[in-house]
Amino acid sequence: MDSGTAERKDWMGLLARAPEGRIAGLMADAGLAGDTTWLRPPEVGSVMVRGRTGGTGAAFNLGEMTVTRCSLKLACGTVGHGYVQGRRKDDAGAAALVDALMQTDRADQVADAVLVPLQAEEVERKAARAAKAASTRVEFFTMVRGEDA
């Protein structure tokens, strides 16, 4: 996989995990917008989530999740795709717009305004949760008994 694809995977994942309304909020703060036409207007559907037997083995169908997806095109012809969990057409649209803009010469501006703060907020969110989990980690004290001590 080339580095461009790896970068795009990273930002599409970050956009998919963003909290409701956050991408549009950051876009609005930065005054970012794009002249777009829908290739596929936002639609709600399901994706079957798979697991693995025993955590490592054969795939099985765990259950579905709701997903909203869309595709759009900028005036210059650049195409963006948005995939988010839930029934969130605005968020899918905002994700697709950012995906498209990130492939244009405005990429640096969009990254600074949207991706950088999203990434920082996500790191903070995950760190807070991990820290709470860490505080519940059991520290065992061994009680030594008997003559072998």
Partner: peptide, 8 residues
């Protein structure tokens, strides 16, 4: 149905 995921 849009499809299926990779096994988590």
């Amino acid at each position: 149905r849009f499809g299926f995921s990779r096994p988590i």
